Amino acid sequence: MSHSHTHHHHRHSPVEGNRNRAFAIGIVLNTAFVVVEVVYGILADSMALLADAGHNLSDVLGLVLAWGAAWLAGRQATKYRTYGMRKTTILAALLNALILMVAIGGIGWESVRRLMDPAPVAGQTVIIVALIGTAINAATMMLFMAGQKEDLNIRGAFLHMAADAGVSLGVAVGGALILWTGWLWIDPILSLVIVLVIFMGTWGLFRESLNLSLDGVPSGIDPDDVKAHLEGMTGVEGVHHLHIWAMSTTENALTAHVVKPDPDDDDAFAQTIHDRMRREFGIGHVTIQWERDTRQCPDV
C-alpha cells in the first residue's frame, strides 16, 4: 500500500500588500472617527452618537482581530502545529460574527426601548457627524469588497464596515426626517430595519464560519460530486474514507482512500487527481492513500 500526498500553494486574494493596506487604513480611519463621535457626542449631549461610537469601537476591534488572524495564517508550520495557524482566520470570522450579533442585539434593544418611549433627537450636529461616519465606513467597506468574495475572514471585516455604514446612515436619515416631521418614532423604526438587514448578512457569516470551525465541508463543494469525480477516473474502482475540510478561509483540503488495483504510475495519477480537485472544486491540499483491494479497508 502506498501513500501519495500532493500540495498546492494557494495565493491569497487580495494580495497580502493590498490586504495589509486595507486593514491599516480601515483601522486608522475608524479609530479617528470614534474619537470624533465621542467628542461631539459629549458636546451635543447625544446618547445616539455615544452609542454609535461604542458600535464603531467594536468594528475597530473586529478589524484588528481579522488582520491579526490573517497575519497568523501566514506563519510557517511547526513540529506541533503541522498546518501552521491558518485556522485562526476561521476562528476570527466566527468571533466577528458573534461580535456583530451582540452589537445588533444591543442596537435592537435600544431601538425597542426608544420606540416605546421616544426621546428627543439631537440637532444638526448629529446628522453631520453621522454622515461623516457613513462616508468613512463605506470607504473602508470598499477596501474589502474584492477579497470578501473568496475569504470568509475578509468577509467578516467587510460585513462589519457595511453594518456600521448602515447604522450611521440610519442615524443621519432618521435625524433629518425627525427634524422635518417631528415624528420621534422614525429613529427607532429605522434602527430596527437596519438591525434586520445586518442580521440577515451576519447569520450567513456565523453559520458558515461555525461549519468550517467544526471541519465541515466548505460551502460550494458537494462531497458526492467529488466522490463521483474520483470514481469516474480510469483505473479507480472505489473511493471511501473521503474527508473534505477547510484549513483556512481560503484553503481547502481533502483526504481519501482510493482503490486502484494497478500500482503503475501512482505518482503521476496522484498529481492528476490533485490538479482536477484544484481546478474543479478549489481543493488545493490533497492526500491520497492507495488501496489495491477493497477488502483491506472496508468502507465504514
Rank of each mutant, 00 (worst) to 15 (best):
S2E: 15
S2Y: 09
H3W: 10
S4V: 06
S4R: 08
H7I: 06
H8R: 04
R11L: 09
N18H: 11
N20K: 08
R21H: 10
F23A: 08
A24Y: 02
A24F: 06
A24Q: 02
G26D: 08
L29W: 05
V34M: 10
V35R: 06
E37R: 10
E37I: 06
M47A: 14
L49K: 04
A53H: 01
G54I: 04
G54T: 07
H55E: 07
L57M: 11
V60M: 03
V64Y: 05
V64A: 12
L65Y: 03
A77K: 01
M85S: 10
K87F: 12
T88Y: 10
L91E: 13
A93D: 06
N96W: 05
I99W: 03
I99F: 14
M101T: 15
M101D: 09
M101E: 09
I107Q: 12
I107A: 15
G108I: 08
G108A: 14
W109G: 06
V112M: 09
R114H: 14
R114Y: 10
M116A: 13
G123C: 02
T125G: 06
V126I: 07
V126G: 07
I127Q: 04
I128S: 03
L131S: 09
M145I: 14
G147S: 08
G147C: 06
L152G: 01
F158C: 11
L159I: 14
V167Q: 01
G175H: 00
L179A: 12
T181K: 01
W185Y: 04
I186N: 02
I189Y: 00
I189Q: 00
S191M: 02
L192D: 00
I194V: 11
I194R: 00
I194H: 01
L196I: 10
G201Q: 00
G201N: 01
G204E: 03
L210S: 12
N211E: 08
N211A: 11
S213Q: 06
V217N: 07
S219F: 13
D225N: 11
V226Q: 10
K227G: 07
H229D: 13
E231A: 13
E231S: 12
M233Q: 13
T234N: 15
V236D: 02
V236K: 02
E237W: 07
G238S: 04
G238F: 04
A246Y: 02
T249H: 01
N252P: 03
L254Q: 03
A256S: 11
V259M: 05
K260I: 10
D265W: 07
A270C: 11
T272I: 11
I273L: 03
H274E: 14
H274M: 05
D293I: 10
C297H: 15
C297K: 15
P298S: 14
